[in-house]
Design a protein around this nucleic acid. Structure first.
Lengths: 358, 358
DNA sequence: AACGTTCGTGCGAACGTTCGCATTATTAGT
DNA sequence: ACTAATAATGCGAACGTTCGCACGAACGTT
C-alpha cells in the first residue's frame, strides 16, 4: 500500500502549479500544447490517479449511486438480480460512477433511515429503487427531500419521477394470446392479491386478451394469493376440481414459482402438461427451461433496464436534460415458448405464424 | 436537498470548539459531563451527521469495501448471490461500513485495473474476493500490493491470506455416505475438470467415502466436464449405457444443474429417480425442492460465511488482531435429503439413524 | 507553598482536491 | 509604440473533517 501520488508531485515534475494540473486533467481550461503534453507525461510516468475522496469533498459529489433491494426468501431466488446488478455496474462504470449497495430493512422506519443516512452523509448522489409499490415510503421520502432517484417499477400515477417498468400487461397478453392460439378457451389466471400494483398491471393483459377473443372470464378462474409454489399447487388443484364444463384447460401464472406448483398439481391430477393443460409462467427463471416439461415464460429485458436506469439517473445528476422525462418508460417483455404450453411436443407441428406471435 | 449541518454549527450551539465536538462524537476524549450533554443535545437538535467524505479524506480511510463477482450465465443463476450479498451488507453496516460493488471483467488485465483503480483512488479500504482459483491473478496482485482482502474460497496452499471456504469434501462425503446407506454400491460422480480447485476438494470427499466403504471406484464412473445441464444429461446417459454389472445405481453431482440434467437423462432412460437411481446435487438451488422428484443437495452456510468474511476483513483493517488468522477457515455444509436419493418415497420408511447421517 | 498530574478544552494544521479570480505573457489593433 | 483584447497560468481559499500538541485549571502530593 504505497504512498499515493498527488497533484503537487505531478505539478513539480511538469513545472506548473498543481492547480493548473487539476484543470488540465479535468479539461477545464486551455493551455499551451507543450505544457499539456508535459503534464500528461508526468501523469503517466508517476501513474497519478486523483484521490477520489478529496475530489468528492471539494466537488460536493460522491460519484456513487445507492441501491438496495428486498431479499428473496431462501426457497425462491430472485431470477434477475445478478444480471440487473451487473448491467447497472457496467453502465455506471462507463461514466465514472460506482454502486454502493446497502442492506434492506423491512421495517419502514429503519429503511428510511438507511436512505437518509446515505444522503445526509453525502455518500451517494442518487438512488436506484426497485420493486416500488403503491405509496412506497421510499418514493414519498425522496420526493419530499427532493433527492435524485430513479425507479424500476411504477408507483401511484400522481407521483412523478423517472422510472422504467416492464409492460407486464403486454407480457400477459402475449401469454394469453399464445394459449388462445393453441385452441384454449377456458384460461385461468394465478394472480397476486388485488393490492399488488405489478400484479394488476399484468392482469390487465390477461383480461384484455380474453375480451378481444370474445371470451367472458369467470370469477372462478381468477385465483389470487402469494406468488409461491405452494399457492400455485393449491390454486391449480382447485381449478381442476371445477365442473368439467367450466374447468380451465390452461393457466397463466404471474410468476414461475406459481407455475411450477401448478405443473406439479396438474401432473398429480393425472393430466399432461402441454398437450392437455397449457401453463405459462413469468420471469423466465433460469431453471425454467430444464423443468419437465420446460416452462413457457415471459422474459424481461433486464440488462437493458439496468443500463437505462443508470443513464436516466446520471443525466438527472449531471442535469443534462433540462426538460426531464418524469414519465414511466415502458419496456416490452418477450414470450419464450416451451413445451408447457404447446399442444404438440414437436415445435415443427406448430405453424410458424402462431409460434412467433398470435 | 437542504444544506448540511456541519461540526461548526454544532459547536456554536453547544458553546465549544468544533474540534471538541469532533472528539466527543468519536469518543476520543473525555469531557465534563454537562459539556458532553450539551454537545449531544445540539447534535440531536440540529440532526447533525458527519460528512462522510470529509471524514474519509482526513482519516485516509473510506469505510468502504469493494466486491465484484463473476456473473452467472443467464441460464444458470447464482443460487447464493442474494443471500451472500445481504449477509455482507448487514455485517458491514453494523460496523459502519458499506459495500461498493463493481463490474466483473473477464479480461485479466482489465480486471486488475478495476481493483487497482479502486485502491489507488482510495475508494475502498479492502476487498472481498469470491470464487478464487489456483494462481488467481487478483490474489497475486493484492498480495504483492499488500492491500487488505479476504476471500471466499481457497487458492494455492503456499499463498497466505485470510479466507473462508466451504468444506466441499465434507459435503460430498455426506452425500456419498448417504447413498451408501441407501444400499448403493456403484456410485458415479459428475465432476468438473481436473484444474478446478473447488472441484478437486469436493471429489476428495467422494473418494474418501468410497474408500472407507471398501469400494473400488471405477474410472468410468468419474465423468468430468462443464458444470451445466447439458453435460449432466450427457454424462448420465453415458453412465447408463455401461454394461449392467458396472452400471452405477447412483450419482453424486458437483452442482445442481448437472444433477437436474442427470435426473432428466435417467427418466428419459426409463428409470425411476430415487427408488432405482439415486441422485444428489450441490448448492441447494432454491428450485431444487420443487423438482420432480425433489433434489437431495448439499447446502452451504452462506449467510454465516458472508458475516464472517466481513468480520475477518474489518478486524484486519482495524488491526484488532495482531496475530492474524491467515489460514483458511473451513465451514461445514449440510446435506438436505429429498426424494431424488431415497429408495422409498415415504420419509418414514427410512430408519431415523440413516436419515440423520449415515 | 511550590510542584507534578490529571482533566478538559482549544488551536493550528493537514488531508488532496476544485473553484473563482487575479496575474502575467502574448498577440492584435490603432 | 501604446493600448485593448485574448490566452495561459498562478494564487488563495474552501470543502468538513481528524489529529497532535499545547494550554490552563483543578487537584492532590511532598
Amino acid at each position: 500500500m504505497s504512498r499515493r501520488v498527488t497533484l503537487k508531485e505531478v505539478a513539480v515534475r511538469s513545472g506548473v502549479s498543481y492547480q493548473t494540473v487539476s484543470k488540465v486533467i479535468n479539461g477545464q481550461v486551455q493551455v499551451a500544447p507543450d505544457t499539456e503534453a508535459r503534464i500528461w507525461q508526468a501523469v503517466r510516468e508517476l501513474n497519478y490517479r486523483p484521490n477520489y475522496t478529496a475530489r468528492s469533498l471539494r466537488a460536493q459529489r460522491s460519484f456513487t449511486i445507492g441501491y438496495s433491494w428486498r431479499p428473496s426468501p431462501p426457497d425462491q431466488a430472485n431470477p434477475i438480480l445478478d444480471t440487473f446488478l451487473q448491467s447497472m455496474f457496467h453502465a455506471a462504470e462507463q461514466r465514472g460512477y460506482y454502486l454502493l449497495c446497502f442492506p434492506y430493512h423491512s421495517d419502514t422506519q429503519r429503511q428510511i433511515e438507511s436512505y437518509r443516512e446515505l444522503m445526509e452523509t453525502r455518500r451517494v448522489d442518487g438512488f436506484v429503487l426497485s420493486g416500488v409499490e403503491y405509496n412506497d415510503p421510499r418514493v414519498l421520502f425522496l420526493l419530499e427531500q427532493k433527492f435524485p432517484f430513479v425507479a424500476f417499477g411504477r408507483s401511484n400515477p400522481d407521483l412523478h419521477f423517472p422510472s422504467i417498468d416492464v409492460d407486464g400487461g403486454y407480457g400477459l397478453r402475449l401469454a394469453t394470446e399464445h394459449l388462445l392460439a393453441q385452441g384454449h378457451r377456458r384460461i385461468a389466471a394465478l394472480a397476486w392479491p388485488e393490492e399488488s400494483r405489478v400484479g394488476n398491471n399484468r392482469m390487465e393483459g390477461y383480461f384484455s386478451a380474453m375480451r378481444v377473443a370474445g371470451i367472458e372470464t369467470m370469477a372462478e378462474w381468477i385465483q389470487r394469493g402469494e406468488g409461491r409454489y405452494a399457492f400455485g399447487y393449491e390454486a391449480a388443484r382447485r381449478l381442476l376440481a371445477l365442473p368439467a364444463e367450466i374447468r380451465p384447460t390452461a393457466m397463466v401464472c404471474l410468476n414461475d414459482y406459481m407455475a411450477v406448483g401448478a405443473i406439479k398439481a396438474v401432473q398429480d391430477g393425472g393430466f399432461q402438461v402441454g398437450s392437455q393443460i397449457g401453463i405459462t409462467g413469468f420471469d423466465d427463471t433460469p431453471i425454467a427451461q430444464y423443468l419437465t416439461p420446460p416452462l413457457t415464460s415471459v422474459r424481461q429485458p433486464v440488462w437493458e433496464i439496468g443500463e437505462r436506469l443508470i443513464a436516466l439517473l446520471l443525466n438527472l445528476l449531471e442535469a443534462k436534460e433540462t426538460a426531464q422525462e418524469f414519465e414511466t418508460i415502458l419496456m416490452q417483455p418477450q414470450l419464450v415458448v416451451r413445451a408447457s404450453s404447446r399442444k404438440a411436443d414437436q415445435p415443427d407441428l406448430i405453424p410458424k405464424e402462431v409460434m412467433r406471435d398470435p
